[in-house]
Computed example of a mutant assay.
Amino acid sequence: MKKVLLIIGLSVLTVGLAIGGYGFYIYKSMQSAVDSMHQPIDRTKSDKREVAVDIDSQEPLAFLLMGVDERGADKGRTDTIIVITVNPEEESMKMVSIPRDTYTEIVGRGTMDKINHAYAFGGPEMAINTVENFFDIPLDYFVTINMEGFKEIVDVLGGVSVESEMAFSYGGYDFDEGILELDGEAALAYSRMRYEDPRGDLGRNDRQRQIIDAIIKEGAQFSTITKADDILDSLGKNVATNLTFDEMMKIQSNYAKARHNSETLEFSGNGGGKKDGIWYLFVPEEEREHVSHELRVHLGIEDSSEVAAAEE
């Protein structure tokens, strides 16, 4: 019996060491991938936060997630713009999508234009400053995802599963209502359609969030561990962020519980129209202020009583 237990114990130890060694290899590969994604930016131009957020003290923080439709030599525009605020004390997240055609000031150019043009004009810095001005909040970190790179990431994962709320055709694909299994090309087409959707950009933003969620869920499966090298290589080529590897690790450690309590905020009004022959979405000021107050309270910048007073 002792011999049997010794053999079992040594076997478990051997497997454990092998897994641990592989885990260290993945850790180092992840660090290398994040280093290739890292794009430092100058945040001294922002007047929304006097000092940098302290993630060691678990202060609330905000992210700007941008899906960039970059094709060939085209620098691309941000077809998907999502602001995410995280409050670790409340263990909650708030997410709001800004429609790409939203009419606003492009900070740094002194012009009024579609909000998704900010990235094309001035990269992440101008996009961040423009969204900060729009919501009157600080944005601590940005993440851009090349939408063309979606298909490579999805294919590396072996495809993703989503649930479509409607049947439609786009990009040579016919999508049924219900559960869909999508490869990379199909996932990209699914995430791009907007004209057949009665909700326009808001509907497309929802489908793009579906794809992102599906990628995260598929990536979390134990079976994808063997694909880690390919996944990290694909992420390294298609994602850019000002987050460092150490900051990612600290955020994962200090803010992870917040992901279990997520609320999505939306603009409910329909303010679309033409100006000088160009179609824009004019977000009603009361709606913009309402969302701004919600985000500012969540970040601890504003007291909740100020939100109630603003809505009266």
Rank of each mutant, 00 (worst) to 15 (best):
V4C: 00
S11V: 14
S11F: 13
G16H: 09
G20V: 07
M30V: 01
R43Q: 09
S46T: 13
D54H: 04
I55T: 06
E59I: 10
P60D: 00
A62S: 15
K75E: 00
R77F: 08
R77S: 06
V86C: 05
E89V: 05
E90C: 07
S92H: 11
S92T: 15
S92A: 15
T104M: 05
V107W: 00
G110C: 09
D113R: 15
H117L: 09
A118H: 07
I137L: 07
D140V: 06
F142L: 11
V143W: 05
M147G: 08
V154M: 04
L157Q: 08
E163L: 02
S164L: 00
A167H: 10
G178D: 13
E181N: 14
D183S: 15
A187M: 06
L188R: 12
E196S: 05
D197M: 02
D201R: 10
R207E: 01
I211T: 00
A214S: 13
G219L: 10
G219Q: 11
I231H: 09
L235I: 14
N238A: 10
D246Y: 00
S253M: 06
N254P: 09
A258W: 02
N261W: 14
N261M: 14
G272Q: 04
G277P: 08
Y280Q: 02
P284K: 01
H290Q: 11
R296I: 08
V297M: 11
L299P: 10
S305G: 01
V307T: 02
A308W: 01
